[in-house]
Design a protein around this nucleic acid. Structure first.
Lengths: 261, 261
DNA sequence: GTCTATAACGAGATAGAC
DNA sequence: GTCTATCTCGTTATAGAC
């Protein structure tokens, strides 16, 4: 009895996985806008109506793919952070950022699915939010540790942002200063911008820089070090993250950050 | 003779413009991947084959739309910079960034066309590069002025990036230090990340912050002030841009920036 | 109950003959 | 330019196999 139950469940899981795999293949070939239930079924040797036992609609399949992608990205970020768990926050920060980049480079179409332009006629349901927050939460965790160690500079928020920033922090990381949480959200968006730029080949529009893959990795590392400076992450030495690196450097917080020297 | 010539030319221009307008409308409704010459023709009361006298292919139409979008974005950036031409570099920086954001919010589908995920099966020809560089060049100009005024901190490049950074700077802005040019390219990508995040509603996945439009404008301003700090733009006072703002703050360049205090 | 297959719908794209 | 015959699509109803 329960054995046939289990067999059924396992079979169902396998078919579901096969459907998603094939859908991902089509995603790469045609793009999310052209994902077609019929084509997936055809390629799998099934008939289109049979798919409806597994996904109630095309949009539901898309939603499942998006959730999977978010989870996979989150896992990659978590694994990267775990691999360097003992090291200094700044080192962990860059490791996680590079994991995000690496994940995107390895699966550009899934990255486009979650961080690219929205699919016309489709809006992701609220339920994908937790999975979507997984990767950024890893970065928040890194910064939280830095905050506990006192290795965090927290420049104040401008007046117009105090209320909103407070609300944001209350919902996302109540134990961190609102200004840090705001900076983190900005840094996450900026990180996605860096990765997205590389994936869509936009660096190609700026001189010879582009093609040379050897330049892009150090460029990215340099840039995310700047991002770390943007959230106030200090280097191990206690000096700001950007000190001998990119740009976030060059700014010393007015009063609260005056402590190194 | 020449009058009929002119009339012909004018008519051709008008039809071309009408085609592009209709195509833009479809872009908004269906997305770039589904742009269809036939549908454009139908909506215009023409027959599809007639369109081929104006655009040799769907891809050519797409290319024209992309070029137009880049030009329009570039114009918006230039206008914003001209409107505050006399003011301090940091003020101009934020004005241009906000113009980019405003343009994207006003025409999200065209923004997706130029900065969103690539359209499957289509690659933009090399010829769109100059138009694409137009908006970022405005930011480069702002930073160039700051550099001339000595209001620029230039943190050094890490070893692995010196060669590539030098090549990049040579092609893009030979009169600026390579480290600044590298930081500028990173800042442009990050700016696109911020705008893209807002356009695709991803802020919605971080607590209540999202919907409240009143929060997003100051958030953006705050974030781009941090970006300015990232490229080493100083405030008018001579202190770093991020001083009482975002996060780029909190970092004082090791040696070359030690001048304020 | 769980699944697959057949057939059909309305809408749209596409190809080719005229 | 027009018309038509032939695709594809998402989705549903229905019938039958396990």
């Amino acid at each position: 009895m329960s054995t046939t139950q289990n067999a059924r469940i396992r079979a169902r899981g396998e078919v579901t996985a096969a459907i998603k795999d094939e859908a991902r293949r089509q995603l790469a070939a045609e793009g999310a806008a052209r994902l077609s239930l019929r084509a997936v079924a055809r390629e799998l040797g099934m008939v289109s109506s049979a798919l409806y036992r597994y996904f109630p609609s095309r949009d539901a399949l898309l939603t499942a793919l998006i959730a999977d992608a978010h989870d996979s990205l989150g896992e990659a970020a978590e694994a990267a952070q775990d691999a360097v768990a003992g090291e200094a926050p700044l080192r962990r920060w860059t490791a996680v950022c590079e994991a995000v980049r690496g994940w995107g480079l390895a699966r550009p179409h899934e990255y486009a699915l979650v961080h690219g332009s929205p699919v016309p006629g489709y809006t992701a349901p609220r339920s994908t939010a937790p999975a979507a927050a997984r990767a950024p939460l890893v970065l928040i965790g890194v910064v939280r540790d830095a905050h506990r160690q006192g290795a965090l500079v927290s420049p104040p928020l401008p007046a117009g942002l105090r209320a909103g920033g407070g609300r944001l922090a209350a919902g996302l990381a109540p134990d961190l200063p609102p200004e840090t949480v705001v900076a983190l959200v900005a840094a996450w968006a900026q990180l996605c911008g860096l990765v997205g730029f590389e994936l869509s080949g936009q660096f190609g529009q700026f001189g010879q820089f582009q093609q040379v893959a050897e330049d892009r990795a150090p460029f990215f590392r340099h840039a995310v070090t700047g991002l770390a400076a943007g959230v106030g992450l200090l280097r191990e030495s206690g000096r700001p993250a950007g000190t001998r690196a990119l740009g976030g450097a060059g700014a010393q917080a007015g009063s609260p950050a005056r402590r190194p020297t």
